[in-house]
Amino acid sequence: METAIAFWNILRKDIKNYYLKPPNISWGIIFPLSWTLMQLIRSQGNIEIIDLLPGLMAMSVLFGTTSMLAVTITFERRGRSFDRLLIAPISVSTLVLAKILGAIIFGIINAFIPVVFAAFFINLSGINWAAVVIAVILIAATCALLGLLIAISAKEVFEAQTFSNFFRFPMLFLCGLFIPIEKLPAVLKPISFCLPLTYGTDILNGAITGSSIFNAVFNIFIMLVFVVLLFYLCHKNIRKKWIL
């Protein structure tokens, strides 16, 4: 019970202090919206909105979660308020889960903003929503953990932002968000299959447009492997780098 109280209050504090701030809300709405419009204008009517939706959803989660967690944790580390959490009688696992859950929720909300806009223009009734929800949760979890991994390595907020971009922008082009993986140069394809977002986007493609490279169950399994692996790396690195 004591752990649950601590867990809930860390989550609540993060949502109140960081995620519900006007700049983050506007970022969460404006960023996916501007990308949707950009893609539509660029395609000059040749691309269907439904084809853009998986990439836009994945991208919204990627940018929302990684930047938020990397920046907020680095900010708390710098002000040493994070030490309060490290000296509280809660396990590192509980702390990691509480910190990433806020980012996951933020990512999930971000993911559905393009869907809300798309609903005004196209019929979304043929979408496999169960698969979409699973994919969004898994993408948000992997991206949040990636953000945490970045935060562990960064000492300053600007470093966290730089490291985030170092991961995010290659993922944007290598994970099949807007350029199909089969059209990538042969040398880049293996890299693409090493990135978690590739599998998350593939689930979304299958659920929304009906075309995917892999079976949904396989994609979910690979995503879960990534979640466990990233969680383990975060846990290990926190103990190594933050408890000196």
Partner: peptide, 29 residues
């Protein structure tokens, strides 16, 4: 109980909320 050399509470929270948050870390209802 630990009082560090730096005042490391949360700047964006008020005094009351800061205290309540710190208490919650110890499982206080």
């Amino acid at each position: 109980g630990v009082i560090p050399d730096e005042n490391n509470l949360y700047g964006e929270m008020d005094g009351f909320d800061n205290l309540c948050f710190c208490a919650s870390l110890y499982g206080m209802r």
